[in-house]
Design a protein around this nucleic acid. Sequence first.
DNA 1: GAGCAATGTCATATC
DNA 2: TCGATATGACATTGC
Length: 800
Amino acid sequence: MLYLKKYFTEGLIQFTILLSLIGVRVDVDTYLSNQLPPLREIILGPSSAYTQTQFHNLRNTLDGYGIHPKSVDLDHFFTTRRLLNQVRQLDRLSVPSTELNTWLVHRETETVVSTSSQSSPSITLDNGASLEDINNIDSTPAMRGGAAAPESSYNLNAADSSLGAVAPEGNQEQSSADGNDDLTKEDIDLIDILWRQDIDLGAGREVFNYSNRQKESEEKPSLLESKDRNEERESWRNGINLQGTPPVDGETGESIPEQLAGLSSQTSLSLQECLRLLEATFPFGEEAEFPAPDVTEEISVSNEEAPSTSQSLPLGSQLPGDEPQLDLEQQWQDIMAIMELQALEVNTTDPQTDFSSASAPNGTTDANTVANFGLATRSTPINEDVSLHQASIPSCSQDFPQIFNSQLDSTSIPPPRASMPRLSSSNSSNINSTFGATNLTGIFLPPPINGSSSNITSTPTLPDPFATLLEESMLDEISLLDLAMEEGFSQAQASQLEDELDSDSGLSLDSSHSPASPSSSETSCSSAASSSSTSATFSEEGAVGYSTDSEVATAETEEGAVGGYQSEYSKLCRMSYQDLSQFHPQLDSISHNHTYNLPLSSAFSEDPELPLTAGKKTIRDKHSSKLQPPQDLLDKHSSRDERRARTMKIPFSNEKIINLPVDEFNELLAKHHLNEAQLALIRDIRRRGKNKMAAQNCRKRKLDAIITLEQGVQDLRRDKARLLKEKMEFLRSIRQMKHKMQSLYQEVFSQLRDEEGRPYPPSQYSLQYSADGSVLIMPRSVTAAEQNRKPEKKQKDKKK
DNA sequence: GAGCAATGTCATATC
DNA sequence: TCGATATGACATTGC
C-alpha cells in the first residue's frame, strides 16, 4: 500500500502540475463526495480530526464511487481541516503571503483501486487547497526533517516534503489501516528516523530513479518487516501490472517491480484519461476560470511543438502508445525547468527565498516528491502569491510584439531583465508554445526579452504593453516637437500654431489694431487727394475726417494728372499705412501732414486762371484759411518750386510743367517766350516734380513690397502650421495602423502551424511582407542575412 | 531742441 | 545719347 500511495501521489503530482500549468482550475472540493475519503486522506493519512476514515476502506469507497461529488459537507470537512491545520501551525514560522495551490488528480486503471469503472468521474481530485494544508502533516517525518531547513515549507519544497512524506505516513496509516493500530509511537519514531536518515544521507535527485526508489521502497518495508504490507504490495503489484511480466532493469538486471513499470505507462495513461474525463466531467465552458480550448489537444500540440519537452511530457494521443517507457525523470527535469523559469520570474533577488542548496537536501525527502525535480531547490518566492492553477502563462505570442517591434520600431524594445538571459529562447518558446496557447492575453502583452517569457506566474513586474504604446506615442510627439524645432519653430511657436490652428483665425498678429479708428495722420494723408475710390475703400472701415467725394472730385479735376496720381498714391499710401500699422501698432500714434498731396503751385502760378486753387486745399487748410489771409496761406503751404515759379513769373502751373508729356511740354515752352532763368527753373521744377513722384512711387513700392513680404511670411506660417497639424494627424494614423498591424501580426503568427501542426517559434521565424502584398514566413536567420546585405549594397552604391 | 517719420531733393543707375 | 524712371542718400518739414 505504501507503493500504491507513493506512485499514486506521483501521478497526481504530475497531473496537478500539468493542470496548473495549463491554467485549468479545478475546484475539486465540489466534486468530491463526503463519503469518499479525500485524496489527502489517501496520501497523507487520516488526520486526528477525521480519524474515522480508515485507509483500508479506501478501496471499498473508491469502488463505490457512486456518490455525487457535489456535497456541501465536503466543504465543511475541508474547512475544518484547514482551520485545524492553521491552529497547528501557530507554533510555526508562517509565511502567509506565499500560497501555492495545486490539485492532485489521478485516475487509476480499471483493475486497481478502481475509480474509473463507475459512471462518476474516475478522477480522484484532491483539492490541495494551500500548502498550509498540506504541510500540516506534523506527523510526517519528512516534514520534520525538512524543518531543519528554513521554513520554506510553504513553497513547493514544503509541498514536496509533505507529499514525499506520504510513504512513511502511509506506512503509519497503512499500519493503522491494516489494523495495526497497536503500532507504537516508537515504531513511528523509528520510521521517522529512517526517513530522516535518507534525507540526511543526501537522498537527492537520484532517489527519483525508479530503481533507486524501488530499492528504497523495498528497503524500508524490509525494515519494517510488515507482512501485511508485503501482502498488500503483492496485491497491488498484481493489480497494476496487467501484463504480468515484470520488467527488468536494463542496467542492473533486477526485476523492476511491476507497479513501477506499470506506473510509467499508467501514469501517462492516467493523465490522458484524466484529461479526457476532465473535459467530459467538468466542461470547461461551465467553469468560468477554465480556458475554453481543448486541453488535451493543446497539450498534444504543445508536445509536438516543443521538441525538448515533447519526449518528457508524453501527453495526448501519442503518449501511451508511442512511448511506453516514459522517462519520468526527464519529465521532472522539464517541469523543473518550467518551475525554474517561474521562480526566476517571481523570485528575483530576495536571497531569503532561495533555499535551493541549503534546504533542498533536508526539505526534499522522498524520491517521488516534487521537490526533487527542482521546485524545492528553486523555491518559490515567499512574498508572491503563487497559485499555479491561476497562473497566467504567457503565450508564445508574447514574443511577437518584440519581434514585430524589432522590425518596425527597434527603438521601442525595452531593456532585458537581468534574470531572463539565463533562459534559452528555445526552452522558453517551447514552454510558451506548450502552455501559453490558451492564454490570449499574452498576445497583448509586451514581448519578453529574448523570447524567453515563461512567466508561469503572473508577476506584477510584467511590462505594461500600453506603456510601450504610450512611450511610442510620446516619442512621436517629441519627435514632432523636435521637428518643429528643427524647422525653426520654438516650442512657444508650436503651441501658438496649435492655437492658431484651433481658432482658424488666420492672421493673428497685431490684431489689436483696429482699422476703424484711423488716426489724424491718415486723414491728413488723404485729405488732399483722396479719390472716390479711396473713400469707397475706407468707407467700410469708418473713414472719419476724409474729404467728401465732391471735394475730391473738384480737386481731381483741378489737379490734373498730378492730382490723379496723388490720389491714387494716397489711396495706396493709406492702405499701405494701414496695413503696415496692423503689424506696427505704434504707427497709430504718428500723425503727419505731408504736403506733397497738396495741389502744386498752380494756385500761385502766374496764370490768372489758377488763383481759385486756394479753395481746393485740404480741409485743414480750409479751416486754417478762415483764420489767415489767403495769400499768406498760399505762400506758406506752397512748395519751394511753386514759390520760385511765382517769383520767376512762370506763365503756367507746375502741374503742367511736371505732368505734360515731353512733346506738349516743348510746345508749351515754344509758345511762351521765356528767358534762360525761367526755362531752367521750369526744367528743374519738372525734374524735381517727376523725381518727387518717382520717390513717392518708390516708397510706395517699398511699402507694398514690405507688406507683401509680411503677408507672405504669414501665409507661410499658416501653411506650415496646417502642415504640422496634418503631420500630427498622419502620425497618429500611422501609429494606430502600426498597432493594428502589430495585433494582426501576432494573431496571424500565433495561428500559423508548420507541417506537423506545431506553431512556429517566434524567435526563429518572422513574417515578411513582399511587395506584391503576400506574406511569407521566413526564418529569422534569412531575414537577418538579407538585412545585413542591404547595408552592404548601400555602401557599395555609395562607393559607386 | 532732439528725435522721428514723412517728404523732398539730389545723384546716380537703369531702361 | 537723351529722357524717363528707380533708388539710395540726404535734407527738409512737421509733429
